[in-house]
């Protein structure tokens, strides 16, 4: 695994909104089969960074390299072409539409100008089955489904479209214990299939348990990027709060990948 090149490199990304400097020279990277946790306070710049990769916002400066190529991401569709799929906490699905409609949203297959509804339904059934996801009825509005089911539909969407890079924004925040476990299991499976995953979360326990590396941001700047297990949970929390890296000789290993 260490021999392959990075899937994503975001280098020196800066972004400001009016007078507010949201990101300053932030760099992160992601390798295949790896989960990288992005940590920080509210307003630390996590969401902005991730939206830039997802095509929902544009960087003022900096570059994005995906699988060794310079990527020009202007909108969500560009991001998808590079295999970047995003699962937003609140904004993943349209509650008024069915699972197949959500799965193909923005990429509806058509023939002679007409939607291929049966094809969509069959493909959605297969995609959900592949991840062992059970939902009552493919025709039902997703609004009537549980948080876990909805999250599962989002994930199956990413898998169906062959995502290589998955961005998950607070994937377990709205879920109960059992559903969280289900989602975590899904993620482990994706990871073993060689996907790279950015995991944005406030929940330090989840992050500590499931990420390989972490990148901590504070005030729109990199604090540290290191292997998760180089530090204890308490140390990580303290770095999030102070915004200062702990100097530690044993902070080596995978953490050195970032510059």
């Amino acid at each position: 695994m260490a021999e392959t090149g990075p899937l994503v490199e975001m280098r020196n990304i800066s972004k400001h909104f009016g007078g507010l400097q949201a990101l300053t020279d932030v760099s992160v990277d992601l390798y295949p089969g790896e989960v990288v946790g992005i940590l920080g306070h509210n307003g630390a710049g996590k969401s902005t960074l991730i939206k830039i990769l997802a095509g929902a916002q544009r960087a003022d400066s900096g570059e994005i390299i995906i699988a060794g190529e310079h990527a020009h991401i202007g909108d969500p569709n560009d991001a998808r072409k590079y295999g970047v799929e995003t699962i937003y906490q609140e904004l993943a699905l349209c509650g008024n539409l069915s699972a197949p409609a959500n799965l193909f949203m923005g990429r509806e297959p058509q023939r002679f100008g007409f939607l291929r509804k049966k094809f969509m339904r069959d493909e959605a059934a297969k995609a959900l089955k592949k991840l062992s996801i059970k939902i009552k009825s493919l025709g039902a509005e997703v609004e009537s489904m549980s948080g876990g089911q909805r999250q599962a539909i989002s994930i199956s969407r990413a898998v169906y479209f062959d995502a290589r890079i998955l961005i998950m924004d607070e994937p377990t925040a709205a879920l109960g214990m059992e559903e969280t476990e289900m989602v975590i299991k899904l993620i482990q499976e994706l990871k073993s299939n060689g996907l790279g995953i950015f995991w944005i979360s406030h929940d330090i326990h989840d992050v500590y348990a499931f990420t390989d590396r972490i990148a901590i941001l504070n005030g729109g700047r990199n604090v540290i990027t290191c292997a998760t297990k180089d530090f204890t949970q308490d140390e990580i929390v303290s770095m999030i709060i102070t915004g200062k890296p702990l100097d530690r000789s044993q902070a080596t290993g995978q953490g050195n990948r970032a510059q």
Partner: peptide, 9 residues
């Protein structure tokens, strides 16, 4: 949900 629609391309 207009924002979802936008984010989904």
């Amino acid at each position: 949900d207009e924002r979802v629609a936008r984010l989904q391309g």
